[in-house]
Simulated assay, not measured.
Amino acid sequence: MTIYALKPRFQSLLRPLVRRLAEAGVTANQVTLVAAAGSLLLGGLIAWKIGASPSILLLLPPWLLLRMGLNAVDGMLAREHGQRSRLGALLNEIGDVASDAALCAPFALLPPFGAGGIGAVVLLSALSEFAGVLGPSIGASRRYDGPLGKSDRALFLGALGLLAGLVGGLPGWLWPLPWLLSLLLLLTIVRRARGALAENPT
């Protein structure tokens, strides 16, 4: 059970809004670009301010919730309102990976973490999405399974941002957390690869 399993209920809540956006002429690609640009800007702001003011991380949880909503909206506009496109598929995948990296990387500047652990999380997060998107290339579906998908990572980052923002930093005993997340990401990659192979074993 992961956060991704709650997606259908979340989409049901957003459907009336998505319908109004489609009627107003808003496109899926526009929403995708807004989500990516917002993540890149916020990631840069956090990296700039985090050393002097860890409270900047309080901006992270509400943005991650909004970004989750934007990601759902762009997908629903594409699927339910005839806006699927090859450009949209590329923007969605590239934007997600870039956004994840931008929002996670500033934690390398926050003790007790460092560049090694956070760098591993950023790299493996990208590889986990790569493993998921490779499914169709071997005749399987796009894979979202595994213990640490995109929505689960957002939950972890939001919780860390909230904690660090409220108390002005993170406790030293959390230093192994990036390596634990890296292990879960490795399991996610393996799970997605095995799932794709099992779906189309020929």
Score class of each variant (00 low, 15 high):
Ser85Tyr: 09
Ile46Leu: 09
Leu197Tyr: 15
Pro16Gly: 12
Thr27Ser: 12
Leu160Glu: 02
Pro16Lys: 12
Ser53Asn: 15
Leu181Gly: 03
Gly168Cys: 11
Gly149Thr: 02
Arg15Glu: 14
Ser137Asp: 14
Ile46Asn: 01
Asp74Ile: 00
Thr202Asn: 15
Leu103Met: 10
Phe113Glu: 03
Arg153Ala: 04
Gly149Phe: 05
Leu13Met: 14
Ala131Val: 03
Asp145Val: 14
Gly169His: 06
Thr32Arg: 01
Leu42Arg: 00
Thr188Ala: 07
Leu184Pro: 04
Pro111Glu: 06
Ala52Leu: 06
Trp179His: 14
Leu33Pro: 07
Leu184Glu: 00
Phe156Gln: 11
Met1Val: 14
Leu127Gly: 09
Gly168Ala: 12
Pro111Trp: 07
Phe107Ser: 01
Leu13Arg: 11
Ser137His: 15
Leu185Asn: 01
Gly158Gln: 01
Leu17Ser: 14
Leu155Cys: 08
Ala198Lys: 13
Ala164Glu: 05
Leu170Pro: 09
Lys49Ile: 04
Ile3Cys: 08
Phe107Arg: 06
Leu45Phe: 12
Ile138Asp: 12
Ala140Ser: 06
Arg194Leu: 14
Ala164Gln: 02
Pro178Met: 13
Leu14Phe: 08
Pro106Glu: 01
Pro178Gly: 14
Ala5Cys: 14
Gly169Trp: 03
His81Pro: 07
Ile118Asn: 05
Leu109Gly: 09
Gly158Glu: 00
Gly119Met: 10
Ala35Pro: 00
Arg142Val: 08
Ser137Lys: 15
Leu66Asp: 09
Leu60Phe: 01
Leu58Ser: 04
Gly146Phe: 02
Leu163Thr: 12
Leu180Tyr: 15
Val34Leu: 08
Met76Leu: 11
Leu162Ser: 11
Ser151Val: 02
Gln11Ala: 11
Ala105Thr: 07
Gly158Trp: 01
Val133Ile: 15
Gly161Asn: 03
Gly119Asn: 09
Gly119Arg: 06
Leu91Tyr: 06
Asn71Thr: 04
Arg192Pro: 02
Asn29Lys: 09
Pro147Cys: 05
Gly132His: 02
Met76Cys: 10
Ala154Phe: 08
Leu110Gly: 07
Glu80Met: 10
Met1Tyr: 12
Leu160Pro: 02
Asp152Trp: 04
Ala196Ile: 07
Gly117Trp: 02
Trp179Asn: 13
Arg15Asn: 13
Val122Trp: 00
Leu60Glu: 00
